[in-house]
Simulated scan of single mutants.
Amino acid sequence: MVVLTGVAAGACGNLVDTSNYDTRGGLALGMNGAGEIIAHVEACQFRVDEVRVVQGRELLGGEPNPRLGLLVTDQPQTGRFEVNLSNPRAPWRAEQPLTEPPDPEHIVIVDAMPDGSTSPKIEGIRQESASRVELEALAPGEVIVSEWNPDAGPSESPLRNVRIRLEDFHPECPAE
């Protein structure tokens, strides 16, 4: 997994100054046998109290990505855990139940949001995105993560989705 520091290219091609960010851990997206979307989170030492789901920008102009769901907990989670986005279970609850895009080829973008209690910088966990079509194509035990695509052309995203086994999902966490 590549972690960018300093100035990095954002997913939309913009330069982003990441010097004031503390980015750790990661997120993988999967699906259970009931067709429910599962976020597998490695929060390292961060405490996550919110998971946001927004629609990708396939048909959008300059407006913000519409929010499709918001899951919250009063018991912030840390380390490795999973959140069922489609049908949350305690300690998670849907403040805004997940509504998927009408086109199964459109992506959802998932962000696990730290509560800001463990770092003097802006805390962040790497977001992930996938379409229902991609998720339904996963074999049992597989998840989707993104990786840097060094061969991306000027009109392509610098990130690409790859399928890995859940047991191979090991985002880097700094030593405490």
Rank of each mutant, 00 (worst) to 15 (best):
V2Q: 12
V2W: 07
L4R: 09
T5P: 02
G6L: 01
V7L: 04
G10S: 10
G10Y: 02
C12I: 01
V16F: 07
D17F: 02
N20C: 08
Y21W: 13
Y21N: 06
L27M: 11
A28L: 00
G30W: 00
N32H: 09
H40W: 01
V41I: 15
Q45D: 08
F46A: 03
V48P: 01
D49G: 09
V51T: 12
V53F: 10
Q55S: 08
Q55D: 10
R57I: 05
E58D: 12
E58T: 08
R67S: 10
L71G: 04
V72K: 15
P76K: 03
T78P: 12
T78A: 09
G79S: 10
V83N: 13
L85C: 04
P88H: 15
P88D: 15
R89G: 11
W92G: 15
W92L: 08
E95T: 06
E95W: 05
L98K: 01
T99I: 03
P101T: 06
P101H: 07
P101G: 14
D103F: 04
E105R: 09
I107D: 15
M113E: 03
P114H: 09
G116I: 03
G116T: 05
G116V: 02
S117V: 00
T118L: 11
P120Q: 15
K121H: 11
R126C: 09
S131H: 01
V133Q: 04
E134I: 00
L135Y: 03
E142R: 07
E142M: 08
V143C: 11
I144E: 06
I144F: 06
I144D: 04
S146Q: 10
W148K: 11
N149K: 13
P150T: 08
G153A: 06
G153H: 05
P154R: 05
S155H: 02
R160T: 12
N161I: 01
N161F: 00
R165P: 00
P174T: 11
A175W: 07
